[in-house]
Write a protein that binds this DNA or RNA. Sequence first.
DNA 1: CCCCTGCATGGATTA
DNA 2: AATCCATGCAGGGGG
Length: 849
Amino acid sequence: MESRVCMNGLCANSSNSVEWKKGWPLRSGGFATLCDDCGTAYEQLIFCETFHSEETGWRECTSCKKRLHCGCIASSSLLELLDTGGVHCRGCSKSSKLPSTPLEEKHKACGLSTDNGIDQNFDKMAPAQSDDNAQKDGQEHVPPSQNDDTTPRKLEEDFAGSGEIGFKLFSSFNQSSVVPPKDQDTLRDSKSDGSEHKSLVQTNLSISLSASSNLNTLPGAIAEERQLSASISSFQQGCRPRHVLPRLPNSILPAGLETNSSTITQLRVARPPVEGRVKNQLLPRYWPRITDQELQQISGDSNSTIIPLFEKVLSASDAGRIGRLVLPKACAEAYFPPISQPEGLPLRIQDVKGKEWIFQFRFWPNNNSRMYVLEGVTPCIQSMQLQAGDTVTFSRMDPEGKLLMGFRKASSTLSVQKDSHYSMNSGAFQGEQLLGNAENLPMMSGYSGLLQSLKETRASSMTLLSKHVYPGNISPHIIEKNVSQSMGLPERKRRNIGPKSKRLLIDGQDSLELRLSWEEVQEMLRPPPRVEPSTIMVEDHEFEEFEEPPVFGKRSIFIVRLSGEQEQWTQCDSCFKWRKVPIDFLLPHKWTCQDNVTDQMRSSCSAPDELSSRELEILLRMNKDFTKRRVQTSLKQESQDLETLTNAAPVGVETNEPGSSSVGPTTKHPRHRPGCSCIVCIQPPSGKGKHKPTCVCNVCMTVKRRFKTLMMRKKKRQSEREAEIAQKNHQFASAAKEEAEVDSIPLRLESEILLHGQSQENAEILKGELDLNCCPGRENHAAPPRVSMMSLLQEASLPLETYLRQNGLTSLVSEQQVASPLGLSAGIQEHEEGSNEFSEKDQRENDPS
DNA sequence: CCCCTGCATGGATTA
DNA sequence: AATCCATGCAGGGGG
């Protein structure tokens, strides 16, 4: 029994001398052990040699001939750790023995150090040895049990590809571009040397491919380990190619991007996990998408190796107050220390600002499986100002083994072409600054934040031993492209925004913009070119069916002049002048003046603008304003729907009237829809049906109180909204007056400026939306007016004058027109006024009091 | 009553 | 069909 100082750094009494109950000398010189003081299991460097044959990266059990692969997480398992230490091969029922190897012998001894070597070390602290060694020793040895934990931790095999991946990594990178000659020499030397060198190279392979071997290895490790680390680091440098991510075939690149690296800046690339063993198991959605440039920047001049591990888009519950971040199982098992008890263990992770956090890494039993979570993340999430929809990224810095946590704001993912601006006090922003905005994509990347924090750390005291180099060229597998540049939606984006995102309860403006961006994207979809649709009939409606996915069209602005003439305006991608195009013209995603075949006068970029700058300014401002209103309206509508339903349930109000959202969430589960038959939704709501109206039980009282509170809130909001509307009226009147003084074009929006919509149908639908949404009095209706969608559409498609006249608002039209010959602002205002009036009128009709 | 913890559920996704 | 995982919720503890 050896006495050493606890070095896990997680122990409050880390300076105490603790007994290494199950000290397991590792090949690296480190030990896996359990701190007697804090009970924390931890390991130091663990490297695998045993199961890496030089050629294939795996070995066969000499007894059962089954492949034993280190560190793989596969479905089948043949190896299990014994509580007593050692390893048991299910295939041959042999057990390994405890190595009693002195440190000098460690290079020859073989702990069952695996890629996932901490598996044993963290959990079991069990000395282990391969079957191979057991075989050599000619004995089976099952050490006496010292561990109460009787749950065998499984190691899996059947992942022969892992090792192969390692070699593929080696062979597929562009050596000349990333490996200095010296390193290549080193590599050659190491390869050409004797077996010891080979084994070390092999070891190094396992290091670089290792996902978790170095986790939380803290500075202050014992001297032996440091020495070994250093020596290994030198090998890491020699084997730098092994760190290099595979360069994917150019065919994956979108057309036009293959070679033009000078014009494209860095694209955010989903990187398959460096660690081969998880590559085939980690879902692409978790692949880290750190850019080469970010990595290089993070690495900087140091010798530090940054290994992107995985990333995850935060769900509502991840970003919520509970403070639990659900970890993808595969990622947790691959990259975080193995845990055998649900309580897990504390994990140190450094955030983008350089601050170290300690999260509880644990799991819950779930459906015969496990659900891994990081607990206590709320402060960290808050400090990074993350919300649902944002992405957290996990990396590891080797050889320190330090876990790094970065982030990427959702807005940087989707609103890539927007004029986004970001919080100046954001660490990510600062990081972005440091990156020199090389991506040309507005980006809020925690990797960028990492850059800064790492630089700071570096400046302090960190010793960085090796440098991570990625190929200079882009190696996209899944490319997150600028939406407007893409002719097809990247698979990953589809996946994230699609069904998965239904669960995202996204709050906040950024996330809302994200959602609306998606809606906008939907509106920009065009039929695939050169593909003839087949027509199918579904319930007497004709649908065009395309065999190819839709493509993106260019954004345009629709306007309607006072004369009733509709116009479509779009911007040249080359000269950025605005051109008028036929109303029914389907714009390709890239459009220039040369494509303006319908207007020969302006089919060249040299042709002057048709609109004056002032007119353009007004047009765009109104356009922007309308977008903003639409966002807000949509948000209000959603919250109103939800609230209406929430309120209606306890008091038994039927909310499913025509005109109200037919797909609104239920009162039970906001994410469930009416008609949902889940066990929760089919239960009667508390207080409804079960209790009498006079019941004063806790449930009923709570419901009543909540109802009362909500009604009070509604009243308050209503009055605030009225005040706001009055203020807006004033502002718009002023603006209209001002614009009337300047030269103007006789444009008028019939009801609104239409964004993205390509057809009159869209216009009508949007009108319908506005009618539905801009109804401030609506929520006060005990029974909202019965309005069908068809009638709304009909209403919306009426000329504004007719519409207003029907609602007794003729004077408004004339006033606004007089005030604003331009008619743009008036158009929007008119509609909103109309909506308000409409609502108020309805309110009067429906609520005489 | 609020908050935390641990588990259960079921939609989404993958095999 | 199996698995993952986002989220709901019951139960317990503390203020």
